[in-house]
C-alpha cells in the first residue's frame, strides 16, 4: 500500500508546482506582482545619514538626518529621466502636505535647475548627488525613487518609479495622513 502511495508523489509535486505557478501568474496578470519592482532593504531601518551640497547654494550643504521634527519624503530625481517629469504633478500635491527633500541624482546642477523651472519645484531643499554615491547608500537602482521617512528617521516606505495618481491616492496620502494624525 505504502508502495503504491509513492506513485502519487510525482502528482503531488506537480500540483505544488502548478499552484505556485498559477498564483504567480494570476498575481502578475492582476498587476499585484510587479516583475521590475524590488523591495528596499532599508525599510524599517534608519536613514543612511547623507550630506550633500545644496543645489540652491553650492557652498551650503543639506543633511538628511536620523531625527527631524516631522516626517518627510526623500525623492531621487534627475532632469534626464522622463518618468521624473511624469511624477511632477504628484510631487506638487505631496509637497503641500509634507516636506520633500530632493536629491538630484547624477545630474548637472544647471540641468536640474532648468528641470525645476520647467516642471515645478516641490522640494524644501535639494541636494546634489553628482556621482550617485548617495544613491548607492540608499540602495537606489533607478530614478525616480521616493522614500518616506518617519520623524525618528526610520524609512517606512520606498517607491521605485514615478508616483502616479493611483499610487499617490492609495499609498502615499493615507500613510502620510496617518503619520501626521499621530502627532
Amino acid at each position: 500500500m505504502a508502495r503504491s502511495l509513492t506513485h502519487f508523489l510525482p502528482l503531488l509535486l506537480f500540483v505544488c508546482f502548478a499552484s505556485i505557478a498559477s498564483v504567480a501568474l494570476i498575481m502578475t496578470l492582476s498587476g499585484e506582482r510587479k516583475l521590475s519592482e524590488l523591495p528596499s532593504a532599508l525599510i524599517g531601518k534608519p536613514v543612511p545619514v547623507t550630506e550633500l551640497p545644496s543645489l540652491s547654494n553650492p557652498q551650503a550643504f543639506i543633511k538628511i538626518e536620523a531625527t527631524t521634527a516631522t516626517p518627510y519624503l526623500v525623492n531621487f530625481f534627475a532632469s534626464w529621466c522622463a518618468p521624473c517629469r511624469a511624477e511632477a504633478p504628484a510631487l506638487a500635491i505631496l509637497g503641500k502636505q509634507i516636506d520633500i527633500i530632493g536629491v538630484a541624482y547624477k545630474d548637472k546642477p544647471e540641468d536640474s535647475r532648468k528641470f525645476l523651472a520647467d516642471f515645478g519645484n516641490p522640494y524644501r531643499a535639494i541636494g546634489i548627488d553628482n556621482d550617485g554615491a548617495a544613491g548607492l547608500n540608499w540602495g537606489v537602482y533607478g530614478v525616480p525613487e521616493t522614500y518616506l521617512i518617519s520623524k525618528d528617521g526610520i524609512i517606512l516606505k520606498r517607491h521605485a518609479g514615478p508616483i502616479d495618481g493611483d499610487i499617490l491616492r492609495d499609498e502615499f496620502l493615507p500613510l502620510i495622513r496617518s503619520l501626521q494624525d499621530r502627532e
Partner: peptide
C-alpha cells in the same frame, strides 16, 4: 498535459 498523465501514472504504476 502533465496533471492527467501523472494521475494516470499514480493509478496504474503499481
Amino acid at each position: 498535459a502533465v496533471g492527467l498523465p501523472l494521475f494516470l501514472y499514480a493509478l496504474r504504476a503499481g
